[in-house]
Design a protein around this nucleic acid. Structure first.
Lengths: 350, 350
DNA sequence: CCGGAACGTGAGAGCGCTCTCATCACAAGG
DNA sequence: CCTTGTGATGAGAGCGCTCTCACGTTCCGG
């Protein structure tokens, strides 16, 4: 009877075997594997070659059982809408996190709860101690999962500023300054009637980017007319309908800052439909510097965020929290860059 | 002295405690937890309430140690270039996989090797049995990791048709038929001089989409002129320079099928720059139905792929392989849809 | 009324590892 | 020469779980 069901790490080498091969005890092999200094050089060499010959790889489960550590961290993406899937934010972030964790031989367990029920299970899983720490991509105010995790004592680092009263370490991009620089750029280009398509006000990036817009206007001594602010949901359609509102209230608008490239693409479509020239009549700046920014006509000036770096940073903070190197709450804000393209060139370009 | 380093699942409840609370043995609790039928209903109820009261969650490491199973599967994304990061393929795929695994209470361990060295470590990790199976997003011909895994006896399912001689279960999208339908659509729109911007010929999707282009031409009895085929690297710039080649050889071109939306965006930019109207003079069709497709001017007709479904399917096959339900090599091909937009409307639209 | 199947339950071994503690060899100090 | 210290090594317990096996009970057919 052939082995019906595949189970077990079929005959994987154990510490015991390495030990007997090297003529030492399990304990000594363990010390070598874990880099303890309390091993004489020649014994160490002997053990190392036994390990190499046998192709020994430690069993993580066994190790985890005794140490109480899992050598893995959870990354929670709790985003029911399609928002995150329309720009490369998410893969880049994961790449940054992954790179940083690999160096420390930690596993990345990805959790993407889809329903409220999923979210509960995810929280249970994390709190049960199946990972040594967690990264949460936090976007909404009403994140139940986030509040549960923040209460539990599991090491936790957020991507993005946490909403309201949640206190946790986080890494964020300087949304406010990024938005501000975008609007300052419009002002420097000679625009006077500058509107914005803001993101949802229950999402910190939405709030922060709007604040940056206001900062820039205030600093330039321009009035901030509420009719120059419309809200979108970060999608192209949302951007388009918000732009229609702005035009209805302010046909004389000559500059628009959209809180995402997708919304900026919607803005462009409406401007084209109403016969306005970009950047001649209206200058447009987006946010994210995504693939969309280069594929529109004209290409979008946009705010670039160091997403991979954010991932690396978040992993670093989490590792520190797990190791107990640093038990304080940490806040890291990364700077953005404005990438200038044709959509915001000076007035009336040929 | 306060606990300096956080370790251990601090005081997590164990089977033993549940057992004594319920007045039964560890074995019985284990049976209840694992849904064995060999437990009388009243004992089961008692145990279940003890579990609930104590908030018991099984320790995966301990379980894994004895069963030899890890209840986790590895997902390998081995893509050094930025290709995957410019469209939402990757997050959607992960979502599909994740959803399917969650139902079966399996963990998703994400592996994104960046260097050749990383790839070796990843292979070691997978082969060492730290996961019960693996999904590989396979794109290139020269994938060393893939060949190593295919040799090892670890359950493996690929996303995308494997290159050359590799034999493994896989789930793919019908690239060939998708491309064919795109080109047939151009033909039906009255186009006669139809070119294509193909993907790299060391990537199965590149090869398959080109084949689909040829199929459609052949079926329509159109000649297939090699000068109507140019190659890009799936990026916008690549698409643009390939389009320049096509125009140089065939100024009379009136239809283009690009193997990615990004390349199609490059095509549009060149057509605009050379004063050609889309779709009036040249109709364009892309591939991927990404966010880019709706943000170009005009919006791109594009081939839509059921990516999440692909993820779900790949997870299903892997679980079957792990459970031994099905030991045969499996091949699943999913159908695509052509999403029609303005870039390929009939000739000379007003 | 008895033998034995069928079922429910418990005892106990052991998965592979780490870690504490005991042991041993050797060196240095009195 | 004996004590004490120091550093290298081994013995053994035990992490929390599953699983085999044995045992006791019930229930059936003969």
């Amino acid at each position: 009877m052939a082995s019906g069901v595949l189970r077990d790490r079929r005959g994987a080498t154990t510490l015991e075997e390495v030990a007997s091969r090297a003529g030492v005890s399990r304990a000594t092999v363990s010390r070598v594997v874990n880099g303890s200094p309390r091993v004489s050089p020649d014994v160490r060499r002997g053990v190392e070659s036994a390990i190499a010959e046998l192709g020994y790889v430690p069993n993580r489960a066994a190790r985890s059982l005794v140490t109480g550590r899992t050598a893995s961290i959870g990354v929670v993406i709790n985003e029911p809408t399609g928002r995150l899937f329309d720009d490369p934010f998410f893969p880049r972030l994961l790449r940054g996190i992954s790179g940083s964790l690999t160096e420390r031989d930690l596993q990345l367990v990805l959790l993407m709860p889809e329903s409220a029920e999923d979210a509960q299970r995810t929280a249970d899983y994390l709190i049960a101690g199946h990972v040594d720490g967690a990264v949460m991509v936090s976007l909404h105010d009403d994140d139940v999962l986030l509040s549960r995790l923040a209460l539990a004592s599991i090491p936790l680092v957020l991507v993005g500023r946490p909403p309201q009263g949640v206190s946790a370490s986080f890494v964020d991009v300087d949304n406010r300054q990024g938005a501000r620089s975008a609007v300052e750029h419009l002002i420097a280009g000679g625009r006077h009637v500058i509107g914005t398509i803001a993101g949802p006000s229950d999402m910190p990036p939405g709030v922060d980017r709007l604040a940056g817009y206001r900062d820039a206007l205030a600093a330039a001594g321009l009035i901030s007319d509420p009719a120059l602010i419309a809200y979108g949901d970060f999608t192209q359609d949302g951007g388009a309908s918000a732009m229609r509102q702005l035009l209805a209230a302010h046909p004389d608008i000559d500059g628009v800052f959209a809180a995402s490239d997708l919304m900026a693409a919607g803005v462009l479509s409406i401007l084209a439909a109403t016969g306005r020239h970009v950047p001649g009549d209206v200058a447009v700046v987006g946010y994210d510097d995504s693939a969309v920014a280069t594929s529109t006509n004209p290409p979008l000036t946009s705010v670039h965020q160091p997403i991979e770096e954010m991932g690396r940073e978040v992993a670093r903070l989490l590792v520190e929290a797990i190791d107990g190197t640093n038990r304080a709450r940490r806040r890291v804000i990364l700077a953005t860059d404005l990438v200038k393209r044709a959509s915001s060139a000076g007035r009336r370009v040929p």
